[in-house]
Amino acid sequence: MKKNSMSPKRKRTIGQIMNRKEVAGYVFILPFLIGFFGFIILPMLVSFGFSFTRFNILKTPSFIGLQNYITMFTSDATFWKSFGATLYYVVFSVPLRLIMALIVAMLLVKSTKLSGFYRAVYYLPSIIGSSVAVAILWKRMFASNGVINAMLQSTGIPSTIAWLGRTDTAIWTLIILAVWQFGSSMLIFLSGLKQIPVSLYESAKVDGANGIHRFIKITLPMLTPTIFFNLINQIINGFMAFTQSYIITQGAPRDSTLFYTVYMYQNSFAYGKLGYGCAMAWVMVMFVGLITFILFKSQKRWVYYEAER
């Protein structure tokens, strides 16, 4: 690259300049840069600035230095509780969801007459998203006289548990909801699986490798970029999960399902502490950023890119 640009005399046409990867790269990411500088960076910096203030939305912010951060770490028990609940949620829901998504994607990757139908059916739960209808539905299903208990009773387990009313089970209703809505990850796995060249399998078949063997030797490594993507995304989404907790449980019982973002939101709007809310947001960004950073660093060890071979 460098040599090219140093080569003198030859007058380059605009086309040639544009074709240099250095320039082309910026041309391609230009939309992102416009969006980032136009609409994101300023609000982002402002929210970072807010995190050092005491700020009721309706009033003028006043600078209080690191006070928000200090309060958060030293004297806000609810902060730690919400952090713990979110971490618990992420630790269980993300792997379960991904495993579920991968298994179903493997089942549905074959093109049979019905696979389109099955895909649609498995994707359906993700379509209904987290609307108010889902909230009502979920509360009804896990109610003490709900469908879940009815099912348990029909199999002979006399269950009258109020699933949403126990500190140890309430969070699991939300985890199950997350796992149930595995459709997005499944879809991404499906596209990932579709990208694996058939020829690889064919040559493996010739070599006499069986199904499990092929899965471990071909599917899994070829799928690592997709797994990596799903993992990063699900972790980010997991920490940012909001609606489930907000509309279904509102943190009850006893803050056992109070997600970090919900507590942040309560502070920012209901309690008139937008500054504190912003500080909480940035703590989360740092934390999730750190995890993402570590995952990106670990990429070299386990993610396999065809283009980098």
Binding site: K139, S144, A162, L164, G165, R166, T249, P253
Partner: peptide, 8 residues
């Protein structure tokens, strides 16, 4: 009415 029922 017990607390755990009041959640649902």
């Amino acid at each position: 009415i017990p607390a755990n029922l009041l959640v649902e």
